[in-house]
Amino acid sequence: MHELSLARDMTRIIGKVLGGCRPLDTVNITIGPLSGISPESLRFCFTEVAKMEGFGEPKLVITETEAKLICLDCNVEYQAKEFYQGCPSCGSFSRRILSGREFTVDSVEIMEGTD
């Protein structure tokens, strides 16, 4: 359940950029498949944390990226959506991770009325 800490980190980052809390319409984030984060668990925690901290009930839009890996047995560079997707060329799991552990808050969308 480190997703609760991560949800608090997300609102801290958003609050810092916005200069305080305000109701949000949408929060866009990116999660890599090797980040060790459960998107469902993060969504559950973020919904509660956002509400408690004055950010309303924003939609959380999660972009899940593919990892980039390089096979240490045959040198092929490949992409994977999950941990146990081995080298498409030789099947090996022995690889160097080039990317796939990212976790970023990309942007927020705020509804502005003309009242």
């Binding site: 980190d9 942007s107 502005e112």
Partner: peptide, 19 residues
Amino acid sequence: DDTTIQIVDISTPVMNKND
């Protein structure tokens, strides 16, 4: 028609502070 959506760029890795 009276509402607009403002998009605010954040582009911040969540682990920045820890790192």
